[in-house]
């Protein structure tokens, strides 16, 4: 399964605290049985709702809560220095046409479809989301998944992940695509009667030396 955790660091984050957090996650990755791959990405400025880091994990274990309970992390959580926001899911829609991508940008969007949304509307929303890579070439690798609250409790319902060759791909090609603002955004826009997604999102992006989405391809 994939496990994606947003790390919300409390208080000021200077270089020594960055180093401490990054060291703690590296130690935690070594403490958990079944962890196959791990990547910790420090967010670029401009991210919203997802804290300061994305921790991507490919996990063979049964209980992803083991990641949160790794002693190296638990210590920081218990002393109030760190809050973890975790989603877990099995692979669903995944496309990795560029597995050799290097020094890329990994973007993650965690979203929550509002309760009581009719299933047909959720299906239309998912279909529109899945169409994005066909119309936005800058999305090189991508995955779209329903979060599984039985694997790990979470209020998030969906995880939308992409890899771009450069930041411009996300900030310009993706954001300025008519498919995005003209078709998909209505599902998110609080002014649109079509809207089904909560306005609170985790929209984060970080550098990655090699593909993360390609771990399972």
């Amino acid at each position: 399964m994939r496990v994606v955790t947003m790390l919300h660091v409390e208080g000021e984050l200077d270089q020594s605290r960055h180093a401490a957090i990054e060291h703690a996650v590296a130690r935690a990755a070594g403490e958990v049985a079944g962890l196959r791959r791990s990547h910790l990405g420090r967010h670029y400025p401009g991210t919203v709702g997802g804290g300061q880091y994305t921790w991507d994990v490919l996990f063979d274990g049964r209980d992803p809560a083991a990641l949160r309970q790794a002693p190296a992390l638990l210590e920081l959580v218990e002393e109030g220095a760190l809050r973890l926001d975790t989603v877990a899911f099995e692979r669903q829609h995944l496309s990795v046409p560029e597995p050799g991508i290097r020094d890329c940008v990994k973007r993650t969007l965690l979203l929550r479809v509002l309760p009581d949304t009719p299933p047909e509307a959720v299906e239309r929303f998912e279909r529109d989301m899945l169409g994005m890579p066909r119309y936005i070439d800058a999305i090189r690798n991508w995955a779209f998944s329903r979060a599984d609250p039985e694997l790990h409790p979470t209020p998030w319902t969906h995880v939308w992940e992409q890899e771009y060759r450069e930041l411009r791909g996300l900030q310009e090609d993706y954001m300025l695509s008519p498919y995005h603002w003209g078709l998909v955004d209505g599902w998110y826009d609080p002014e649109s009667p079509q809207r089904i997604v909560d306005t609170n999102l985790a929209h984060v992006y970080c550098p990655a030396a090699t593909t993360i989405l390609g771990w399972e391809a």
Partner: peptide, 26 residues
């Protein structure tokens, strides 16, 4: 778009309407 005044406007609007749609165009 999350401005509370806008949210309040559309709530008031809903009381006077039966439905609406919004489309984006070039």
């Amino acid at each position: 778009a999350r401005d509370p005044e806008i949210t309040a406007w559309w709530a008031a609007s809903d009381a006077l309407t039966l439905g609406r749609e919004r489309k984006f165009m070039l």
